[in-house]
């Protein structure tokens, strides 16, 4: 996969051409895309991808499939709504953004660490069951608690701060905000997975007993992974609440928690890029399925069926997701030879 490393090439020469094209398209997108495309499609893809990349980090590198990431994102979003200004003035404290944002990250991280400490007492499929149960409990709690989480209606009019005189909810600034956050999170995940901690985490994933015998604290690594992943999830959650300008228990329900897993798996849960690819596919399907389904005479609500079937197909036939399909297609292309001469084409 990785190109051969030639020592005389500079670092930016080693990056394949396709990456430069993708970066150029993403950076110049506001020039040719309309506002709906920028704000709804791309913005939402980056947000979903950012939340899903936290799951990729946990599942792909830590071996812990957690359904809690949406709850953590939701908690960070809720904290922004509760501590900062919102339409529900009786609850929201209306603090300044430079207090609200660190507090939101911190609270979400504490929650993730506590839940992670509970979840790492179990392994594999047990982790899924327990995180699903915690996610559901958190959902019901936010729905029934009116003193802090404002129950069923949640918070509305949660707007990003007017920093540097820019309205960050305008399509182009919001697009760049999401792009920047997503790129940072992607870079951070890639960086962490190559750091000593990330390597130890992958060792814990592959053989916890051997890692324990080598002197690594397996439990601490796992809990720390949960805490780190919460940062990415919080970024996504805060962007999500700014994009929708509201947050309610429905945002963090069980279907939403499962959607994050679906997104990560469809794209390919082994690689951070998969989260963003999966998110893009998911959003495209969700946004455009009403039109497509309508032309075939189905109701627009059957979108979930398509997503479910697509997820099933991916899990059944390509466990490493769409990126895995792409890799295999490229490998087959590379192996193909000219039928007459036997020389590679």
């Amino acid at each position: 996969m990785a190109p051969a490393r030639a020592p005389d090439r500079l670092w930016f020469e080693r990056i394949p051409m396709a990456w430069w094209i993708v970066v150029a398209v993403l950076l110049t997108m506001p020039l040719f895309a309309n506002n709906f495309w920028l704000f709804q499609v791309m913005g939402w893809s980056f947000i979903l991808g950012t939340i899903a990349v936290s799951l990729t980090f946990l599942a792909g590198y830590g071996g812990m499939v957690s359904l809690l990431q949406m709850s953590i994102a939701g908690l960070a979003g809720y904290m922004v709504a509760i501590l900062g200004p919102s339409g529900t003035t009786s609850i929201s404290l209306g603090l300044a953004w430079w207090i609200v944002l660190p507090a939101a990250f911190l609270i979400a991280a504490v929650f993730a660490t506590l839940c992670g400490a509970l979840a790492v007492r179990t392994e594999g499929i047990y982790t899924i069951m327990i995180t699903l149960a915690i996610a559901a409990a958190f959902f019901y709690f936010t729905r029934q608690n009116y003193t802090i989480f404002n129950g069923y209606s949640g918070f509305n009019l949660v707007l990003p701060p007017q920093l540097f005189g820019v309205n960050w909810r305008d399509p182009a600034p919001f697009y760049y905000l999401c792009l920047g956050c997503a790129a940072l999170c992607y870079g951070a995940v890639v960086y962490i997975t190559r750091s000593p901690f990330g390597l130890a985490l992958q060792g814990v994933r592959d053989n916890p007993r051997r890692m324990a015998a080598l002197g690594f604290n397996v439990t601490a690594h796992r809990v720390a992974a949960h805490a780190l992943a919460s940062v990415f999830a919080s970024v996504g959650g805060i962007l999500l609440v700014w994009q929708n300008a509201q947050i309610a228990p429905g945002t963090i329900g069980i279907p939403a928690a499962i959607d994050i897993l679906v997104v990560a798996v469809i794209g390919g849960i082994r690689r951070p890029l998969g989260a963003f690819v999966g998110a893009f596919i998911y959003v495209i399907l969700q946004v455009f399925s009403p039109d497509i389904l309508g032309t075939f005479g189905f109701s627009a609500e059957r979108f979930k069926l398509i997503i479910g079937l697509g997820f099933l197909a991916v899990v059944l036939f390509s466990p490493d997701g769409v990126l895995g399909l792409w890799d295999r297609w490229r490998a087959r292309r590379a192996r193909r030879v000219d039928p007459l001469t036997g020389a590679p084409r």
Binding site: I258, L261, V265, G308, L309, F311, L312, V315
Partner: peptide, 12 residues
């Protein structure tokens, strides 16, 4: 994961 997919499909 498959059972999650099945539950999404069945629910819809």
């Amino acid at each position: 994961l498959v059972s999650i997919g099945l539950s999404v499909v069945l629910a819809d």
